[in-house]
């Protein structure tokens, strides 16, 4: 095969896959609004995706706050802007670093776990078994997981933001003798509605993308156990990439509103 043909085939495969993911997403919306609703499984998935990720996300947020403060502090002092530290860190964490880092951690943890779980269920015929027992496996497995990821990611992000700011406060308190009340006041004074709302809204899309890609890859996994590993791996890679793409889109849209 010539390199031109290979190039064209690669693009054809890319568009084919994009079309399939889009169809999968449309099916999610169709099935999500159609009764019966799987509330029990949705709650279970919220627990698995939300609560069981809280420690990892919290720890990452805490370290992020510590490191960010330690790294920025010398430069800010050099410019005589030490008093702006809480505000600068608050804006950075809430607007960008908190949502993106949380989404990337979740893409790794949740995306791979959903991809591997559904992939393994697919190759061991558990999904078929569910279907022949008269249960809609798409609704039971896919809809609940995508919804749980979409709902839990904003909550995890808020938690990571809070813990990250606390980490930053510890450094400020240790090195700059700032009280907790003063630190929080400075953060709150500088953060506006326009900083917080878009950053929370975009995390719903991050969660949706992570759940969608994990479920799509797992649900359509093939080629035995090797396929399960590939599904988990590809789910993480694509979900992480999508987080950045969605973040860029979100920032561009927010920018338009700022200019208005």
């Amino acid at each position: 095969m010539s390199s031109k043909h290979k190039y064209l085939n690669d693009w054809a495969a890319y568009f084919d896959e994009t079309g399939k993911v889009t169809r999968f997403a449309f099916r999610f919306f169709r099935e999500a609004v159609k009764p019966p609703y799987e509330f029990r499984e949705l709650l279970k998935q919220c627990y698995v995706i939300g609560y069981q990720s809280l420690f990892l996300v919290g720890l990452t947020g805490f370290i992020m706050g510590l490191v960010f403060d330690l790294q920025s502090r010398p430069t800010m002092i050099e410019f005589g802007a030490e008093s702006f530290m809480p505000g600068m860190i608050g804006i950075s964490i809430v607007r960008e670093i908190g949502p993106v880092i949380t989404a990337l951690i979740c893409a790794g943890k949740i995306g791979s776990s959903i991809g591997a779980e559904l992939g393994s269920m697919k190759v061991t015929e558990q999904i078929d078994a569910m279907e022949v027992s008269g249960t809609n496996p798409f609704k039971y497995l896919v809809v609940t997981r995508i919804m749980a990821a979409t709902l839990m990611l904003p909550i995890l992000t808020i938690a990571a933001d809070g813990i990250g700011l606390f980490g930053s406060y510890l450094i400020e308190s240790y090195k700059g003798d700032v009280t907790f009340k003063l630190y929080i006041n400075k953060v709150i004074n500088i953060l506006s509605f326009g900083d917080m709302v878009p950053s929370i809204i975009k995390t719903f899309f991050f969660g949706f993308a992570i759940g969608l890609i994990g479920c799509y890859k797992g649900y359509n996994s093939e080629k035995g156990t090797a396929g399960v590993g590939a599904a988990a791996n590809v789910a993480v890679v694509i979900a992480s990439l999508l987080v950045f793409v969605l973040d860029l889109i979100a920032v561009l849209i927010s920018d338009i509103f700022y200019e208005l």
Binding site: E125, Q126, A129
Partner: peptide
């Protein structure tokens, strides 16, 4: 099913 397909 051949592999039992129990929900693991």
């Amino acid at each position: 099913f051949q592999g039992s397909a129990l929900y693991d």
